[in-house]
Design a binder for these strands. Sequence first.
DNA 1: AGCACCAAGATCGCATACAATCACCGAGCC
DNA 2: GGCTCGGTGATTGTATGCGATCTTGGTGCT
Lengths: 226, 226
Amino acid sequence: MSTASARAYELIRSLILEGRFAPGERLKEEELTDLCGVSRTPVREGLRRLAIEGLVVVTPHQGAQVAAIGEGELAEIYALRAMIEGHAAGRAAMLISGDDIAKLKALASEMEAAVAAANSDLSGGAAELNARFTPANSEFHRIILDAAMSPRLAAMAALVVEIPLILRTLARYSDAELMRSLQHHRELIAAFEAHDEDWARSVMRSHVLAASHAVVRPGVGRVQPD
Amino acid sequence: MSTASARAYELIRSLILEGRFAPGERLKEEELTDLCGVSRTPVREGLRRLAIEGLVVVTPHQGAQVAAIGEGELAEIYALRAMIEGHAAGRAAMLISGDDIAKLKALASEMEAAVAAANSDLSGGAAELNARFTPANSEFHRIILDAAMSPRLAAMAALVVEIPLILRTLARYSDAELMRSLQHHRELIAAFEAHDEDWARSVMRSHVLAASHAVVRPGVGRVQPD
DNA sequence: AGCACCAAGATCGCATACAATCACCGAGCC
DNA sequence: GGCTCGGTGATTGTATGCGATCTTGGTGCT
């Protein structure tokens, strides 16, 4: 059995990412105590860890609330993400194993199949996309990050990759953007097979920046439309 | 009065950076309790925070030990630092105020004076350098990071800027390298005054990569000379 | 009516007590 | 003699209690 701290951390984190707490909502320690089934101490530790990762903000004597992010902040986060993941892809191009490349290929196929299925089955396409595409996509990026073999780089990535997930961004992709994303994946794999550091970094940067423009888009995603 | 957690965090952190604990040394919570004058709870919180920042590593049921870093790891850390601080300098070039530029100029002068004093006063030059140069240098970099106005970027920087400090790298700079470092500072200020994003980023990258080669050098800094 | 202030309730920060786990060490067995 | 297996001490993980601080609702004053 893992420690209670880790379980509290993971539970709270998943609840936030699932959108069970509204951005800006206050998280009371005792409330989380009930949800997690552990005492306040591990809950506090998990909360502090999430604070450092940027998912919640804690102010002394005032507790924690889930992070609320604005449009400008989101653009800046994507810029950082392009930098970090680009760097990771460059390192990965030098270090990645054939095994991992095979896994990436399988995941790319899975994502393509998910898109195809969503397109043929017109009803509920978006939901199926989220169910099949998103996990494969996360795994795809995680493998690359791990292949870079740099725990510090992974820690940096943790600061920026999860924030956009709070907004559940996939639904906003247009068909053309989705196709482009799939092509990026294939091109990344090609760059890895060629062990071309610059190519891999460049494609990954494009991939993330394209995603950025799919998400932070004028007039879309406003909480308060005016 | 600040919180006990924050004080514990800062105290332990400064002790590590001062070299009062050997790399790899185990940090027992009760021991730190005595040093900090607070209870184990805030000590633990500080320790976890330091773990996320990479200064210590904690393994479950085994406690914390100060991070030990190898040669290859150090090179990788400097590469990350060049990326992060380069990005920060680019953003800062767009956002920095005249006030901050004035402060940077004063700090650059202070560092130049420190080097001049160390060169004329032959005895104890290195010690004086560490006493005058290092704080000014840290402040110089901190101002740029703050000017970038990106808390996440600052958090990333925290992951990599402090690690090299554990090794107290300044003493290894040659005279030529020191002079180059001073010139980099002046050039950075010029780039900021021109609000030239690319120039600032490029100079900062050079600055960090140059430092990298002054530190991770074949045959220097081995713990176990063979 | 609006604002400042005060008190009660709630929540957080810290200290301490208890439980769980691990490392070390010595004895017994193969 | 070397290896395995408990036992014991130390250390970390978790729970809870108490004091400090903040929020909120109401009251009195301007």
